[in-house]
């Protein structure tokens, strides 16, 4: 039984059991590998995507429960046409190993959509679920502030 998904503006027919998490639909079925597997229990945030603009842990959303349009890191921007938040990440030279950064960026993008000029406390609260073992947090914070300025200027 095929399930229909809207991902990054495109429609996909997915023929997988209902309980397969969105994460594994994206990665192994659709081939969108930018969304990462980190823990499988919503404890690290590496798999964060947007559903109807809301940041969610895609490892916890079953295929049959996807309630709206999905946006992944690939839908935000590309190396040749980066979103402002991605530009801010590059400008601040945030990534070390980079594995968690798709999730960090998706989480931050949802924060900025709701709170265009977040305080440090608001950043702390929004980003607390996103783990980075390299320790890039100060540069993530700087990039969020920088992206906020870029978006308000635009």
């Amino acid at each position: 039984m095929a399930t229909q998904l809207r991902i990054n503006g495109e429609t996909h027919q997915v023929d997988l059991p209902d309980d397969v998490p969105l994460l594994w639909v994206l990665r192994d079925e659709i081939g969108l590998t930018g969304t990462k597997f980190g823990c499988g229990v919503a404890a690290c945030g590496a798999c964060t995507v947007h559903i109807d603009g809301e940041a969610v842990r895609s490892c916890q959303v079953a295929l049959s429960d996807v309630w709206g349009d999905v946006t992944t890191i690939e839908g935000l921007g590309t190396p040749d046409a980066m979103a402002r938040i991605q530009q801010a990440w590059v400008e601040q030279q945030v990534a070390q190993c980079g594995y968690c950064q798709s999730g960090q960026i998706m989480q931050a993008a949802a924060l900025l959509a709701e709170t265009p000029d977040p305080t440090d406390a608001e950043i702390d609260e929004a980003m607390a679920g996103n783990l980075c073992r390299c320790g890039t947090y100060p540069r993530i914070r700087a990039a969020i502030h920088s992206a906020s300025r870029k978006m308000q200027e635009a």
Binding site: G34, P79, M82, V94, A95, G98
Partner: peptide
């Protein structure tokens, strides 16, 4: 950096 912020 560009590859790591775009999921590529």
């Amino acid at each position: 950096q560009a590859a790591k912020v775009t999921g590529t």
